[in-house]
Amino acid sequence: MSALVWLLIPVAAAVVALLWGTWAARNRKAGDISELAGYARFREAMERSDSGTGVS
């Protein structure tokens, strides 16, 4: 019985590694458009703001 437990440990680790690898390699392009739009708004806001320090 203890040999079976020792066999299950690497099998469980392999399953966890497989799940993590699948999750890490997922397609994340769905949110890029909104993130890029948010970054463009951030850049525009930074260009508009003037801190008054005279340093450009």
Rank of each mutant, 00 (worst) to 15 (best):
R28E: 11
A25F: 08
A24K: 08
A37Y: 08
I9Y: 03
V11D: 02
A24Y: 15
A12N: 14
N27C: 09
G31R: 13
L4E: 09
A3N: 13
G38T: 06
T22R: 15
A25M: 10
A30M: 09
R41G: 04
D32Q: 11
V11L: 15
I9K: 14
Y39D: 07
A37H: 08
L19G: 07
K29Y: 05
L8K: 14
A40L: 07
V11G: 10
D32A: 11
A17R: 00
L18T: 06
P10M: 03
V16W: 11
I33V: 07
R26I: 04
A3L: 15
R41N: 06
A3Y: 11
E35Q: 04
W6D: 09
V11R: 04
R43W: 04
R43H: 05
I33W: 04
V11Q: 03
W20D: 03
S34I: 00
A25P: 00
A25W: 10
R43I: 14
D32G: 02
L4A: 14
G21P: 00
L4I: 15
E35F: 00
L36M: 06
L7M: 09
P10A: 06
I9A: 06
R26V: 04
R43F: 13
R41D: 03
A25D: 12
A13W: 07
V11C: 09
A3I: 10
E35S: 07
A37L: 11
L7E: 02
K29A: 12
L7N: 07
W20C: 09
V16N: 10
E35R: 14
I9L: 11
G38D: 04
A3T: 13
A3S: 10
W20A: 05
A12V: 12
A12G: 12
A30C: 08
A40H: 08
R41Y: 05
V11N: 05
S34G: 05
G31C: 05
V11A: 13
V16F: 13
G21T: 08
R26T: 06
G38F: 00
R41M: 01
V16H: 01
G21N: 08
R26C: 05
F42L: 07
D32M: 03
I33A: 12
R28Y: 14
A14H: 00
A40T: 15
L4K: 12
G31Y: 01
A14P: 02
R28K: 15
G38W: 01
W6A: 15
W23D: 04
R28P: 02
A30E: 13
L19F: 01
I9Q: 14
R43N: 09
V11M: 10
F42S: 05
Y39Q: 00
N27I: 05
W6V: 06
L36D: 10
I33K: 13
G21M: 08
K29W: 08
W6E: 14
G38I: 02
V15P: 00
A14N: 05
R41T: 02
K29I: 10
A40P: 02
V15F: 13
S34T: 01
L18V: 06
W23M: 05
E35C: 00
V5F: 03
A25E: 04
K29D: 09
A40I: 02
I9E: 02
A17W: 12
A25C: 09
G38L: 01
L19N: 14
A13N: 08
A14G: 15
L7S: 15
W20P: 01
L36E: 11
L19V: 15
A25Y: 06
A24S: 09
R41P: 03
Y39S: 04
L7R: 15
A14L: 12
